[in-house]
Structure formats: structure tokens, C-alpha cells
Design a protein around this nucleic acid. Structure first.
Lengths: 335, 335
DNA sequence: TTGTAAGCGTTATCAG
DNA sequence: CTGATAACGCTTACAA
């Protein structure tokens, strides 16, 4: 736990010189540099990052606030951010469970002084005010923001479009009784996907009915339960749109268990197109979301905003989604 | 970006008083406390964490160094750590890609002064020396450490036992030509699982053969490739042990594609027992690893070591695994 | 090329 | 209960 002073004393130079050595300044002779380096190595000295950032007011750290850490979605977002951040010399400070607005704010405050900015995914649509406040004090970009008011720097997924497209695809295949397995209510992605589904149904002249909407929470087990319920309902749907792949996979498992053939007796689709979806049986038709890229782009937007000095420039980027047709929906598929 | 001085001036008190208010000291009158709080709220003041930690030498932050961030395994480990850490008021600073020892060390140094300790998962078995050095300077616990020397505070998974047990299970079902899909070489889990498989084979009087070992890298696609190769090999194996579930699922997809029935023509098993494995078709026999708990326990071990003041107490805890029999291996299964 | 010294925003000690 | 003031470990003008 040596400090800069210890090294300076041992090397018989001033602390300024030691500092220069560790900051790559050229204004130091080769001889002194080597001498200092060797002493530092001997005592195991390394600059204290907290102290350094206090004077420079640069921390090279980015805060990441996520509502949860469960599942491949968050994992990939984090990976995308981390990789991009690393390339620009940033580290990431993660806080991964904000059931509500209060914990969100608490976590954000705990990061004050430690981070140069934040990438935030709000827990639900009730956090708009809190987000606004955070964004006024530090450059931040929002992931799938609840606020459409265009006043913030944000990036989100084309949830509505994706859900619309996949429902439309099923309609084109001749399905009329298309059910939806919803994600948790309050969740932004969840709501948007539901809207897209309903809109496509309406556009085809079918009134969306509560009887066709099953509640889920993005987990496999909830998809499984929704599947069991759907099978019982009369008349039984001929197709089911799950709000994410995990639920679709749970759903398929329930259908298999009940002896319902996929896609002949029930077409199934997912959303997110996680890696595993192409390997399940039958391969899952889904809406591809480049989650890794979402994280990567979020960082890029952030650093751009941060470098331009000002507060977060208000601009809302939407990452497009893409329909991936495989066999679970009953159309020809890719194989 | 108000500082403590701004608040003190505006509230017409000393900075010491403001500090006391924000540290919950009782030695301040209710009236002053409220006054200070209101001023602080008005100017949006919040203590600067970096500055605070400089004087207290407490950062309430834990560093987490992982070789990669891809997939459910890391995701769950992080979630386990994060949850446990949050309960004790800690945040986590994550660095998630250390292909080699150098980047490991670089990341560790960048955290100096920011974290009170670390939880580290080494990239491969060549990082022992570097780890040793880090552990001398800061309390740390190792995840699946390469060093068995018992000189470090570590926690790992019973990889060897799990692989032994699952191979033994297949042997008991009458299989003799049991192939293995290996994980990346150099990876600690990967190597241990391979050893367990080989040992079980040997114990049954079967010499492990390179012809029965297929290289993979823990991804679905590598499992798929291994599956294709295995089908071609003569004589064809009757069972395959994959070093993780992702590969097993890719493997099953390759078998299905080739019309090989599971488990009748080929028994398949995985490792890790990720959530999705119980929902695939057929449900996957695997070795259950409580990944979330691994992270949780790691934190608990760390905080215990950190509080006891000294350096990491050397003790190596091994988290047991549990064989989960489902249908992919051909025995009766759980349903 | 090197050294001196003034901060950076807090906390903590010690008087009052 | 409150206020000065000295650290904490470092960077960075400014001097030499």
C-alpha cells in the first residue's frame, strides 16, 4: 500500500517526478524514469485511482443501471457496453436491481463522483421524473426509455414494429385466433410488444380480446404456465406470440407435454432471437434483436455526448428488429 | 455539481456540519439538519464518493474480474455477487474480458484505490503468479482457481465430481462408447470436467481415447459441429457427454438434423443445468451447478475475509454439484 | 529536467 | 452542538 510519497522518498526525487513518470510525461530523463519505475515496482506502487480522479475530475468509469440482471438479454447488453467501453479506456460500475424508482435514485447517487456518466435502463414507466433529474446532473443515455417526449438522449428497440411484423406474419399464414403471452406489466418492452400485436390484429380486422392475452413475466416457467392455460381455452388459439424467447420455449415445453404438435396444431413465435432459439426443437421463429449492439451503440452515443461537453443531447435512436422465420410458426422456414 | 462548501456557505454553517448531516451524526440539531438538507436538495448536492473514500479509505465497492461475459453462467455469477453485495451496501465494478494474464493485471491495477477487494475468475491456468501478487495487496477471493496449492481464499465448483458422476450414470445404463465434447483448452472448468469423464471411463475399465474426445468452446455452435463430427465417426458413440449445456443443446440440434433419435440412438448429457435445459426437447440430463450461489458465496467469503482485516485467509471451498436426470440420457427421467 | 506548493471534495480531530 | 483545520493521494501550474 505504498503511496506516491513513499516512492518519491525512496527514489530521492519529488512526488511530481513520480507523478510524471506514471503519466507518461516526456519531461523526465530516461535515467530518472527507469530509476523511479524500478523503485515503484519493488514496493508494488500503483497510483490510487480515487485520488487521481479527485484532481483530474476524470474517473474513466461509466455507471450502468439496470432493472435486473437475469437472463441473456441483460448479459448481452452488459457485454456490449463493456467491450465498447474498454476500447475507449473506460470501466463499468454496474448496479443491477432496481425494482423501483427509489432504488434507482439511490444507486445513481452512490455513483456520484465515481462515474463520468451513466447508461440507464429504467425499471418501469414511472421513473421519468427521476431520470430527468439524473440527466441534468450528468451525461446519460437511456435504454428503452419510458419517455417519448424526445427530451432525452436515448436508444431503444423497435419493439412495436417487431411485434407487429411477427403477428402479421402469422396472420398471413392464415391464423385468426392468435394469442399473446405478455411480459410483465409496467415493463416498457413488454407494453410496446403488446401494442404491436394488438395493432396488427386490429389491422387485420380482428378485435384484440383479453381471452387471447395471457400474462407472463419473461421467464420460461411463466411461458409454460401460459401454455397450459391456452390449451384449455375454448376455442383454442391456433397460434401464440410470446413476448420473448424464454417464454416461447417454456410454452413449447407445455405444448409438447400436452401432446400438442408444433407447428401443426399450434404455431409458436418468440421475441429477441437469443442464440439458443435456433437450436431448440422445432427451431423458433422470432424477432431478432441485436442486444449486444444495443449496449455497444449506447456506449457510443454516451461518449459522443460526453465529449461534446454539454448535457445529453436529446435524440432518440431506434434499433431496428428483423423477423427471423424458422419452423415453429409453420411456414417454410430456413431449412 | 455543488460541493460541500457551496452548501455550507448557502446554509451559513461550516462544512463540518454539512458533513455531519450527511453522515447521520446525531451531534447536530434538528433545526440545522433540516436547514442543511433543504439547501442541499435545492442545489442538488450529494457527497462526492471519490473524495469521501479518499479520507475514509472505504469505497464500498468490490471489483469483479471475469474472463468473459458471454452466456448464462457469468450472468448468474454476477447476479449472485451483486445481490449479496447490495445487501451489505457494496457496489460492484466489473471488468469482463481477460483473454490473458496481462489484461487481468491491467484491469486489477486500474481498480486500485477504487475497490476494497476483488472477486476474480482467472482466464486460464497460467495466471497463478499474477493472482498471487494481487492477493498480497488486497483481499480477494478466487473463483475456480487454477492453483490447488491451498494458499488462497477460493471457491470452486465440483467439476471433477460432476463429470465423473454423469459419465458413471451413462456407464450404468450400459453405454461403453461414450464421447466427450470438451470445453476450451486451458479453461479450468473445462479441464476438470474432462478429467472427471476420463477417470470414470478408466474406472469402468475403458481406456479414454482421443477418438472419443471432440473439441468445443462452450458455445452452441461448437456443440453442433462436434455433433456432426461424432455422427460420422466409426464406430459411432452411443452417448455423448458435453462439457456444458449450451454445447449439449447445439449437439442435440445436429443430431436431430441428421435424423439421429435422442436418446434411443444417442444419449446426450450436459453440464451446468441452466434454466432452459428443462424446457428443451428432450429435457436435458445435466449436472446442476448453482451458479447464482457461487457468486453469492464468493461475496460472503470475501466480506468475511475483508472484515477479519488480514489478507485473504487461505481456504478452498468446493460447491457440490448434483446429477439431474431427465430424458436426454435414456433413463426413466423425472417425468 | 526537476521541485514547490496549491488545490480536488471529503472526513475527522480537536477546540470551543 | 458547531467550527477550524489537518489530512487523504494525487495532478498540475509555476518556479528554478
Amino acid at each position: 500500500v505504498a503511496t506516491i510519497r513513499d516512492v518519491a522518498r525512496l527514489a530521492d526525487v519529488s512526488i511530481a517526478t513520480v507523478s510524471r513518470v506514471f503519466n507518461g510525461s516526456t519531461r523526465v530523463s530516461d535515467q530518472t524514469r527507469h530509476h523511479v519505475r524500478s523503485i515503484a515496482a519493488r514496493v508494488g506502487y500503483w497510483p490510487n485511482t480515487a485520488a487521481r480522479s479527485l484532481t483530474t475530475s476524470r474517473t474513466s468509469t461509466l455507471g450502468v443501471l439496470l432493472p435486473d440482471l437475469y437472463g441473456e438479454f441483460y448479459s448481452e447488453v452488459i457485454r456490449g457496453i463493456d467491450q465498447a467501453a474498454r476500447r475507449d479506456g473506460y470501466q463499468i460500475l454496474i448496479s443491477g436491481s432496481h425494482a423501483d424508482t427509489l432504488t434507482l435514485v439511490t444507486a445513481a447517487r452512490a455513483m456520484h463522483g465515481l462515474v463520468e456518466g451513466m447508461i440507464i435502463m429504467a425499471p418501469d414507466d414511472g421513473s421519468a421524473a427521476a431520470l430527468q433529474e439524473i440527466m441534468e446532473s450528468i451525461p446519460a443515455v437511456l435504454l428503452n426509455p419510458p419517455c417519448d417526449n424526445g427530451s432525452c438522449n436515448a436508444i431503444s428497440i423497435a419493439n412495436y414494429d417487431g411485434a407487429y411484423a411477427i403477428t402479421e406474419h402469422l396472420l398471413a399464414l392464415g391464423h385468426r385466433r392468435i394469442a399473446m403471452v405478455k411480459g410483465p406489466s409496467g415493463n416498457v418492452d413488454s407494453e410496446e410488444r403488446l401494442k404491436g400485436y394488438r395493432a396488427a390484429m386490429l389491422h387485420a380486422g380482428i378485435d384484440p380480446s383479453p381471452d387471447l392475452e395471457f400474462q407472463g413475466d419473461f421467464t420460461e416457467v411463466s411461458g409454460c404456465q401460459a401454455g397450459r392455460a391456452a390449451i384449455q381455452s375454448i376455442p383454442r388459439p391456433t397460434a401464440m406470440v410470446a413476448a420473448n424467447d424464454y417464454m416461447a420455449i417454456g410454452l413449447m415445453s407445455a405444448l409438447r407435454e400436452a401432446g400438442v404438435r408444433i407447428p401443426e396444431e399450434m404455431a409458436v413465435t418468440g421475441f429477441d432471437d437469443i442464440e439458443i432459439s435456433q437450436y431448440v426443437n422445432p427451431p423458433l421463429t422470432s424477432v431478432h434483436v441485436d442486444t449486444y449492439e444495443l449496449g455497444e451503440r449506447a456506449f457510443q452515443r454516451w461518449i459522443q455526448a460526453a465529449r461534446s461537453g454539454g448535457p445529453s443531447s436529446p435524440a432518440h435512436e431506434v434499433l431496428p428488429t428483423r423477423l427471423v422465420v424458422r419452423q415453429s410458426c409453420g411456414s417454410k422456414g430456413t431449412r
